[in-house]
Design a protein around this nucleic acid. Structure first.
Lengths: 220, 220
DNA sequence: TTAGGGGTTTCGGTTTGCCTAAATATTTAC
DNA sequence: GTAAATATTTAGGCAAACCGAAACCCCTAA
């Protein structure tokens, strides 16, 4: 069992990320699309990860993490989210700008430096997008949340998390003063226009694209 | 001209480092030894770097940086030294522990994050070992220094820099309360024992190995 | 002045991680 | 229930960066 490469870490992290907020296990083609690489490349790496005992995979079937794989994946996610938190709290970044930087640093930071950051930030429980930061032992404190895109009219709640996958959307949301912690109420779900209307605490109305509503999770 | 890989950055940084405190250009075999790789691997990479206009090299001759190569090299050195300074000032590292961490992070940090660090640290001029931090334009403020190993008996001066190449020696020196800024006087140069004796301001005497004396630079 | 010998380069080979194209398996849709 | 569409895997290739072994260059010392 050798230590993982940046590429392997990205696979594990992405597989983990897919099941973090929904139960369906990920398939090779979806994983390939998420990573932006060819499906055949996924087949190859999956074979290696399965051989190392990090992944379970029956040919033509979906991918699931073994306990060892889950631990490795949460370790990467922990690094990613602590780095994002540090970028915002110490280095003057905004919450919609940290993803790319963390994406790279998560593969280079040592355990020691990570712990120094964690201590310095006072062991934060959530990153700037509202995602829970896994503990060093791999445990994650998850709060029940529903996707804004699936909320019914009249639903009221707090924004718990906004997926950091698409920075352009994050910037738009930040410009609309919607961020983790924002309270909002669904006025009407997507109708003919496909846009979802929400009201902010100050009474202002915002129209959200389906893409945006698919990234926002609110309290149930 | 594509952007450099971590490997290429290490070559350029090492070539630069060799001439920073002495004039002789580096040869392929010395470069290979410094990088801990085979000479044949150096030949290959040197060809690529020369083709990109970063290096001058006539077959069987020494290696010199072009202006473009010098700029690329000082950019890496700048990243390395700013990261070291940050690790000490913000993250609770000691000056003898930062090298390995910086060695990795120097290849992953973005320009933006580097500038945020630089600003946060108040644009420092020297790293924790006393080495000058190159400016963003590649310029370096170098102070005249002589190698302790070559100082004559009676020479008095301040420790300006201690090369960070060997962490074991750095730890020994730190344990002996010798670090950048320390004042010291050479009592006698290496004699039969090969050890160099220096006196500290408080009157204490230290014996330094030739290896240690070859890493310490004092004011002239 | 020529024979070593040490430094340098060439050559073929390895690993990692990606690719495209083609083959194969599975699912869906009629 | 079979044919078309879709998903997955296999096969062959490529680039980066390394290796060891063998060939080559050059300088020096007898």
């Amino acid at each position: 069992m050798k230590q993982s490469t940046p590429a392997a870490e990205d696979y594990l992290k992405t597989i983990y990320g897919h099941t973090e907020w929904q139960p369906e296990p990920i398939t090779p083609s979806v994983l390939a699309a998420r990573l932006g690489i060819a499906p055949s490349s996924v087949t190859e790496m999956v074979k290696k990860l399965a051989a190392s005992g990090l992944l379970r995979h029956v040919p033509y079937g979906p991918l699931t993490l073994t306990p060892a794989g889950l631990l490795a994946a949460t370790a990467v996610v922990r690094r990613h989210r602590l780095i994002e938190t540090w970028l915002v709290r110490d280095m003057g970044y905004h919450w919609d700008e940290v993803h790319e930087e963390a994406e790279i640093l998560e593969h280079s930071i040592s355990d020691r430096l990570l712990d120094a950051m964690d201590a310095r930030l006072d062991r934060p429980a959530h990153d700037p997008h509202g995602d829970p930061i896994p503990a060093a032992d791999g445990s994650v404190a998850r709060e029940p949340a529903i996707l804004l895109a699936q909320a019914t009219a009249g639903h009221s709640g707090r924004v718990l998390r906004i997926s950091d996958r698409d920075s352009a959307i994050l910037r738009d949301l930040a410009a609309d003063s919607i961020g983790p912690g924002s309270a909002l109420t669904v006025i009407e779900p997507p109708g003919t226009t496909n846009l979802l209307c929400v009201r902010l605490p100050d009474g202002q109305i915002r129209q959200l694209s389906p893409a945006a509503a698919g990234l926002i999770w609110v309290s149930a």
